[in-house]
Design a binder for these strands. Sequence first.
DNA 1: GTACCGATGTTCT
DNA 2: GAACATCGGTACC
Length: 204
Amino acid sequence: MGQLRCGYDFYKQDSVTVAKKLLGKLLVRKLGDEEIICKIVETEAYVGPEDKGSHAYQNRRTKRTEVMFEPGGYAYIFLIYGMYNCLNVVTNERDKPEAVLIRGIEPLKGIELIKKNRNIKSKKAADLTNGPGKLCEALAIEKDLNGYDLISGDQLYIKEADEKIDFEIVSSKRINIDYAEEYKEKLWRFYIKNNPFVSVILKD
DNA sequence: GTACCGATGTTCT
DNA sequence: GAACATCGGTACC
C-alpha cells in the first residue's frame, strides 16, 4: 500500500500547491495498537521568507523554525498561547522555509480514542477536530513529534484517500495573523466547501 | 448565533 | 516583558 502514501515528490512542491492538494487526503496516526484516520478539510500555506505571517519571515532561523529549513516531508509542531500545539507539514526544498498548517480534519476511524483524548463536554462531533489546537489534542500530537519524518515514519503520515470524492475548494484569508500587514490579505487558506469540520467561516 | 475573557508557557526582544 | 498560526466557558442576543 506504500504507493498511496505521500512522498518527497509531493512535499517538495510549494506550500500553496501542497495546501490545496492536502485537502481530501488522509492523516494517519498510530497510537500503540490503535489507529486514527482523519480526512484533511482545512489548511493554510505559509509561503517562505517574504511572508510576514510566517515564523520563517526573512529567513528567521532559530531553534523553533529550524525544521522549516529542512526538505519537505517533516512535521513542524509548535506551541501556541502556552497551551495548544499546532501541526504543520514542511514543504519545498532544503533551505526554502515553507510549511502548511493543518487547521481542520474529519475523523473517519478511531473516533472513540479521539473522544478520550479530547475529553470535552460538547456533543457536537465537529468540536472534536475543527481547529489546529483541537486536532493535535485529538491525535495526541505533541512537541516530541516536531521534526518527525512523515515520509518514512509510521506513527504519523499522510496518504491518498481510498476513493476520490469530488469537492469544491474555497480560498480565504488566513486566521489570526493580524501582525502580518499586507500578507494577512493573501488568500492562502483553503478548505472543503460545506464541510462541518472547517474551523471558521469568514464573512466575505 | 456573536462577544468577550482568562488560561498558560515558550520564544524572542 | 510582550507577543503569540487557540480554546472553552459564560453572557447575552
